Simulated scan of single mutants.
Amino acid sequence: MQHHQLASKAEWLEARRALLKREKEFTRLRDAINAERLALPWVEVEKDYVFDTPSGRRSLAELFDGRSQLMIYHFMFGPDWEAGCPGCSFMADHFDGTLPHLNNHDVTLVAVSRAPLAKIEAYRKRMGWSFPWVSSFGSDFNSDFHVSFTKEELASGKVEYNFTQTPSEQAFDELPGMSAFSRDEQGRVFHTYSSYARGGEELLSTLMILDRAPRGRNETSTLSFVKRHDEYEEPARAHACCAA
Rank of each mutant, 00 (worst) to 15 (best):
Y73K: 13
V45D: 06
S113W: 07
W12S: 12
G187H: 03
S135W: 01
A213M: 13
L40V: 02
H101K: 13
P132H: 00
V43Y: 12
K21A: 12
E25L: 15
F64G: 06
S55T: 12
V226C: 10
A238P: 00
S59P: 06
K9M: 08
S182C: 04
S113Q: 09
L207H: 05
A236I: 10
F181T: 00
C88Q: 08
H74P: 03
L109D: 08
P132F: 00
Y123M: 09
T150M: 06
Y49S: 06
E160C: 01
P54G: 10
G56K: 10
L204D: 09
A243W: 02
V107W: 13
F75Y: 15
E233V: 10
D93Q: 02
K9L: 12
W42T: 15
V147Y: 09
E46K: 15
W133L: 08
T220S: 13
S195R: 14
A115Q: 08
I209N: 08
H74I: 04
I120G: 02
E14K: 15
P79Y: 09
S224W: 08
K21D: 10
V45S: 05
H101P: 00
P116Y: 12
I33F: 03
D48E: 15
Y161M: 00
W129P: 00
G216L: 01
L63E: 00
T192N: 05
E174C: 10
S8H: 10
A18D: 05
R124L: 02
D93F: 00
I72S: 11
F137H: 13
L13V: 06
P41G: 07
L19K: 14
C241V: 11
K151C: 01
Q69M: 10
N162L: 04
H229W: 14
R212Q: 15
E219R: 08
L60C: 07
H94M: 04
E174M: 07
A197T: 06
G84A: 15
